Each structure stands twice: as structure tokens, then as C-alpha cells.
Simulated scan of single mutants.
Amino acid sequence: MVEVTVTPRSSLADCPVRVHVRGLSPSQLVTLRAWLRDEHGERFQARAFFRAVRGALFLPPGPGPFPGVVDLFGGAGGLIEFRAGLLASRGFAVLALAFFAYDDLPRTLSQLDMEYFEEATTVLLQHPKVQGPGLGVIGISKGAEVALAMATFLPQGVATVWINGTGLGTAFLHGNPLVYKDISLPAIPYGLERVLITEMGALDNSAVFGDPQDPTHRSSAIPVEKIKGKVLFVVGEADRSLNSKLFARLAMAQMPPEQSHLLSYPGAGHLIEPPCSPLCSISSIRSSPLPLLWGGEVKPHAEAQEHSWKEIIRFLEKHLGCATQKL
């Protein structure tokens, strides 16, 4: 059933309103119409055209149902699908979800609105081939921040994979504020004055994050101690984008020991991806004027990708239920 909500329900002409449509099928074309009559009985109307849900759904063959997973990437933005396809080949129903720099989404990430991600989990769980009641979430870099916030605020998240996340991994927001219903948390600004340019002309962002243990940052704290599900932290110790091991350990310190597990890999860089993916130690992304330094050494990084992928699959199967069918 399609549901349309307008907030606020009553508004003056010079105040914005938010129109939210739920229950649409993925990629469904929809037309929104609005009209009013003035005091003379004249009718004014407007319409706009949209395409629903900004993501790609990968389903294994067969009737299912299959364990559901939301797949999130980071600062590159857009829609990245290769990991979701691989997870689907392992028997999971996977929604690769874009959250900025895609279609009509904002070109840059100004804030994290958790209602957007809540709606994505609702859409995925409503699919007839997806088994509930809980979901898995996997995210890398900025996507790892989002994944941990989903585990904190949304009850659907029962198994979260956090790969080299940033400040939110410490239970603090960096760079982007978070909003969710009546909750609004400010962000700790990035220390852009601490960005270094290497001899190769790449940006070294490892010092861009402020001290997460600074007491003045308490207003930006995320209550990760409220997480009910399980979290797997995956860390590359040679990450040149950020000190992800510190962020992971600080987050784990706020959670019961049985709720989290850490995989830490010496020599692995920031972009820990599925096995046989090449090491990417430097690359360009659309949001940066110069290439970014990710770090990593070829052999240990490859070994980390091979080992962590097996552990990620095992973790998701354990806490979501084994997939009923695999390719």
C-alpha cells in the first residue's frame, strides 16, 4: 500500500513542507500532484515526476526467503554494486544503497538523515523473498559510520559489519550532523588545516579527525551502548586515511564484550574489499580535488581481504540465519 505523508500538515505559503511517499516498488515511476483553490474559486495545480528507492536489489535464485543485507560504501558516493552481487551469490538478498551523489540525491553529504535508511530497511523487509525480522548491514569508510548509526537507532539491524569506519566508530560524529525524528546531533568539524599533501600529490587525511576523547565533543556522542545486535569490526592497521583501529577500540569499549568482535590486519590499508580485488593505495573520488591516500601493502592487504571475507560471510550467516540457497 502506498502512503503519502506531508509535514507539517498545515503551513503558510512561505514555509517549506516535506512530502514523504512510502510503499513504492523499486524504480517505480510516480507522479505527485498538488492543487489548491483561492478565495475566488480559481484552481492552481502543480505536478512532479520521480523514480522510487535509490539502490539496486540483488536476489539469489530460488523461492527464498533469504537473509537480508543493506550494503553501503563511503565518500565516493553514487551506487556501487559489486560487493552486493557477491553477497547475493552467497545466498543473501542484498540492497546496494546510495545515499548521496546519485540520481536526485544531494551531490555532497551535508547530513545523515536516519529516516532515509530506516525506509530502506522497511522496503527490503517487505520484499516477499526477504526473511525477517532482522537485517544485516555492511559498510566501509563513511558507510561504516552509517552502518553503526543504523545499529544504534534502528531495531531492524541485528548484524553489522564495520570496515575501517571514521569518527562515528568512536560514537562521535565527524563532518556530518545526524538527524533522526526528534534527535539532532551536531558534528565535530574536520580539521582540514591538518590535511597533508604527499610527494605523489595525494591527500593524506590521517590527521583530519579531531581527538574523539576530547570532553568538549560530548554533544556529538552517539549512544552505541544501546546497540542490541552484534557488530564485527574490520580494521586495516596500515590505513592511511584514518586511525581506524583506535576508532574501533573506542567504540567496542562502550559495548558489552559479547556484542562485538575485532579483526585487525597489519599491513592492510583502508579499502578492504572482497578477495581478488586489487590493492588500491591511492585513488581519486568525486568529492576530492586531489587523489586520496588509502595505504596498504600488497601481500598483507590481499591476505586480509581473503580472510576477512570468509569471516564476514560466517558472521552474517551466524546472526541472520544460514542462506537457504547459494550459487
Score class of each variant (00 low, 15 high):
residue 219 S to N: 14
residue 205 N to D: 11
residue 184 S to Y: 14
residue 181 K to D: 08
residue 261 H to Y: 10
residue 175 G to V: 09
residue 254 Q to F: 05
residue 177 P to S: 02
residue 182 D to N: 15
residue 174 H to W: 15
residue 267 G to R: 00
residue 221 A to V: 14
residue 248 A to E: 06
residue 231 V to A: 03
residue 242 L to R: 02
residue 257 P to L: 05
residue 247 F to Q: 11
residue 259 Q to M: 12
residue 249 R to I: 12
residue 203 L to Y: 04
residue 264 S to K: 02
residue 171 A to M: 07
residue 220 S to T: 14
residue 257 P to T: 08
residue 188 I to Q: 01
residue 202 A to P: 09
residue 205 N to Q: 09
residue 186 P to L: 15
residue 266 P to C: 07
residue 248 A to Y: 04
residue 231 V to N: 01
residue 235 V to F: 07
residue 268 A to K: 00
residue 242 L to W: 07
residue 183 I to V: 15
residue 257 P to Y: 03
residue 191 G to D: 11
residue 268 A to H: 04
residue 229 G to K: 01
residue 209 F to A: 06
residue 185 L to Q: 09
residue 224 V to T: 08
residue 202 A to D: 05
residue 230 K to Y: 06
residue 228 K to W: 07
residue 266 P to E: 09
residue 187 A to S: 15
residue 250 L to G: 03
residue 201 G to L: 00
residue 234 V to T: 04
residue 204 D to Y: 01
residue 233 F to Y: 08
residue 199 E to N: 10
residue 190 Y to V: 04
residue 202 A to R: 03
residue 202 A to Q: 04
residue 253 A to T: 11
residue 173 L to R: 00
residue 231 V to S: 03
residue 222 I to P: 01
residue 236 G to E: 08
residue 206 S to I: 09
residue 211 D to P: 12
residue 225 E to C: 03
residue 242 L to Q: 03
residue 200 M to A: 09
residue 243 N to W: 00
residue 229 G to N: 03
residue 246 L to G: 02
residue 207 A to R: 15
residue 265 Y to D: 09
residue 185 L to A: 11
residue 199 E to K: 13
residue 223 P to K: 07
residue 197 I to C: 05
residue 193 E to I: 11
residue 244 S to K: 05
residue 248 A to F: 06
residue 251 A to F: 08
residue 227 I to Q: 00
residue 182 D to T: 15
residue 176 N to G: 05
residue 259 Q to N: 11
residue 268 A to D: 06
residue 230 K to Q: 09
residue 197 I to V: 15
residue 194 R to F: 11
residue 182 D to C: 12
residue 264 S to Q: 09
residue 227 I to N: 00
residue 212 P to C: 03
residue 211 D to V: 13
residue 228 K to Q: 08
residue 198 T to C: 10
residue 245 K to Q: 14
residue 258 E to N: 05
residue 236 G to C: 11
residue 214 D to E: 14
residue 263 L to A: 08
residue 192 L to Q: 06
residue 262 L to M: 07
residue 209 F to C: 04
residue 217 H to I: 14
residue 180 Y to L: 11
residue 199 E to M: 12
residue 258 E to F: 08
residue 252 M to T: 08
residue 184 S to D: 10
residue 191 G to E: 07
residue 217 H to F: 15
residue 180 Y to D: 08
residue 263 L to N: 02
residue 217 H to L: 14
residue 210 G to Q: 02
residue 203 L to W: 01
residue 237 E to C: 07
residue 260 S to C: 09
residue 193 E to K: 10
residue 237 E to S: 06
residue 193 E to A: 10
residue 218 R to Y: 11
residue 216 T to M: 09
residue 201 G to Y: 01
residue 262 L to F: 07
residue 234 V to S: 01
residue 226 K to E: 07
residue 183 I to P: 03
residue 256 P to C: 05
residue 257 P to D: 05
residue 243 N to A: 03
residue 250 L to I: 14
residue 200 M to V: 13
residue 213 Q to A: 13
residue 234 V to A: 02
residue 236 G to M: 10
residue 228 K to C: 05
residue 173 L to W: 00
residue 227 I to A: 00
residue 262 L to N: 06
residue 266 P to H: 06
residue 237 E to G: 02
residue 231 V to P: 02
residue 226 K to I: 08
